[in-house]
Design a protein around this nucleic acid. Structure first.
Lengths: 131, 131
DNA sequence: CGGTATCCGACGAGATACTG
DNA sequence: CAGTATCTCGTCGGATACCG
């Protein structure tokens, strides 16, 4: 990520690593993935609990996003062969490291909520004036 | 954000604030917005410079995302009435605070890149086996 | 150079129904 | 209860072209 001065000597691998980083970043930098990581917090949650705690996410998107996170090794999925079935999700080490940042973002959102709300009003007011 | 125990007494405002938080979070929690905030870093950049530094973003998405960020008061847009026109973008206070977290995420991506790459290989290998 | 508008394909994402 | 499959539609997002 970030700046690559594009050293002419070491081509062919920097770019590969960079595109991979982009890919991973895209996996993680979306609304649902971040919300899931956030609610997963420290403790293990079942599929249904996740569904309830995230709120507003469809059954499909939840499984889908969870698979991506599982594939990237951010969450661990444990299937208990009981009936009815029970599946637990828990953050891995890297997942928890990421969660710290996501938590920061959530805190940021809460802290700056008034500021942003006002910024929006001003912005919207300005463009009504000279439409 | 985070857990609202849903106190039965104070309805009607928590939910409004919460949905607003969701909205803002959604504005910010997407690939392009985060990448823009990241490259904007500390210093002011022109539209064209941003376009080049982000890399892979279309003309349209750049303007579009910038407007959202401007509306939420995360970036400040300054138009110089010259010819050819020149437009500068810079992070506001809240924008810089957020950038810190985004930077963290980028660092995280770089650090865990090998781990994730391997996790992916294992995941993909496993499901080839019992397809 | 920066922004807007339009067209259009591709995927994101919900609803529903079925399996184990 | 958890997951997959299919169908559908809305929106994201790229390409192009035109204004200031």
């Amino acid at each position: 990520m970030s700046e690559q001065p594009a050293n002419p000597a070491d081509d062919g691998d920097v770019t590969r690593a960079d595109s991979l980083a982009r890919e991973i970043f895209a996996d993680v930098a979306n609304k649902w993935a971040l919300l899931i990581i956030n609610v997963l917090g420290e403790r293990t949650l079942r599929f249904g609990e996740l569904h309830a705690e995230v709120g507003g996410i469809s059954h499909k998107m939840l499984t889908q996003t969870l698979r991506v996170l599982e594939r990237d090794g951010l969450v661990e999925r444990t299937v208990h062969p009981t009936v009815p079935p029970r599946v637990d999700y828990v953050l891995t080490g890297p997942g928890q490291a990421l969660r710290a940042m996501v938590n920061g973002m959530c805190g940021w959102t809460r802290r700056h909520l008034p500021h942003i709300e006002e910024a929006r009003r001003r912005f919207d007011a300005d463009r009504s004036g000279n439409a």
